[in-house]
Measured scan of single mutants.
Amino acid sequence: QAPETKIVDKSRVACDGGEGALGHPRVWLQIPEDTGWVECPYCDCKYVLKGSKADAL
């Protein structure tokens, strides 16, 4: 199944896999201003900063 994409309001987000005990260790991710998105290294969930150029795609 394809990784999930989430639109977020802040450039710093936490990801834990979203499945409680079945998820992964919580990691904090920083969305770079130049790209407007970041992917979780564990679950490949893509976080897109709302209003960024990546959000316009």
Rank of each mutant, 00 (worst) to 15 (best):
R26K: 08
I31C: 08
I7H: 07
V13Y: 04
H24R: 03
E19W: 06
A14L: 10
V8K: 03
W37D: 04
D16G: 04
Y47N: 03
L29C: 02
A2D: 11
C43I: 01
I7E: 08
C43D: 00
E33I: 12
V38P: 00
C43M: 04
P32E: 07
E19Y: 11
A2H: 14
C40R: 03
E19C: 15
K50R: 14
S11K: 08
W37M: 07
T5S: 09
L49P: 08
E19V: 10
E33H: 10
K50W: 06
A2Y: 13
I7R: 09
T5L: 11
C45E: 02
V27I: 11
R12P: 15
E39Q: 15
Q1V: 13
R12E: 13
T35I: 13
V27Q: 03
A21Y: 10
K6L: 13
G18N: 07
C45T: 15
E39C: 05
L22S: 11
T35E: 08
L22P: 08
P32N: 08
D9K: 01
Y47W: 07
D44A: 15
L22G: 09
I7K: 06
C15T: 00
A54R: 00
G36H: 02
K46G: 02
L57E: 13
I7Q: 03
C40Y: 05
K46F: 07
A54W: 03
W28V: 03
A14I: 09
G20Q: 03
Q30S: 10
L57V: 10
K46I: 14
K50E: 10
L57R: 02
K50M: 10
W37F: 13
P32C: 07
S11L: 12
A54H: 09
A14V: 09
P41C: 07
E4M: 15
P25Q: 11
G23V: 09
D55H: 03
P3H: 15
A54K: 05
D9R: 01
S11V: 11
D16C: 12
L49V: 05
W37S: 05
E33F: 10
G36Y: 02
E39M: 14
Q1D: 11
Y47I: 07
W37P: 01
A2T: 12
R12F: 14
P3C: 15
E4D: 13
E4F: 15
W37I: 07
V8D: 07
Q30K: 07
T35C: 04
A21E: 12
E39I: 15
V13N: 03
S11C: 09
Y47H: 05
C45H: 15
R26T: 10
K10R: 10
A2M: 14
A56V: 14
V27F: 07
D9N: 08
E33R: 07
E19F: 09
G18D: 05
C43T: 02
C15Q: 00
G17F: 02
D9S: 11
A56R: 12
K50A: 12
K53A: 09
G18L: 09
P32G: 04
D55E: 09
E19S: 10
V48P: 06
I31R: 01
V48N: 02
S52M: 02
K46E: 07
D34R: 06
P32V: 06
G20W: 03
E19G: 14
Q1I: 11
C40H: 07
L49G: 08
H24I: 02
R12Y: 13
P32L: 08
Y42K: 14
P41Q: 06
G51W: 02
L49C: 08
K6I: 14
D55A: 03
E39R: 15
G51D: 07
C40D: 06
S52A: 03
C15L: 00
A2E: 13
V8M: 00
D34A: 09
Y47P: 05
V38Y: 02
K46M: 08
G36D: 02
W28A: 01
E19T: 08
I31M: 00
E4W: 15
H24S: 01
D16W: 05
G20A: 11
G36I: 05
S52Q: 03
R12V: 14
V38L: 04
C15G: 00
V38R: 00
E39Y: 15
L22E: 12
R26Y: 08
K6S: 10
A2R: 14
L57H: 11
C43F: 01
L49M: 07
C45D: 00
D9M: 11
Y42L: 14
V13R: 00
R26I: 10
G51N: 08
T35F: 04
I7C: 11
A21W: 05
Y42Q: 11
G36N: 02
C15P: 00
I31N: 00
T5C: 15
V38S: 01
L22A: 11
D44V: 13
K6G: 07
H24F: 03
E33W: 09
G51M: 01
T35Q: 09
S11F: 08
G23L: 05
G23K: 14
W28Q: 02
D9G: 03
L57Q: 11
K10V: 13
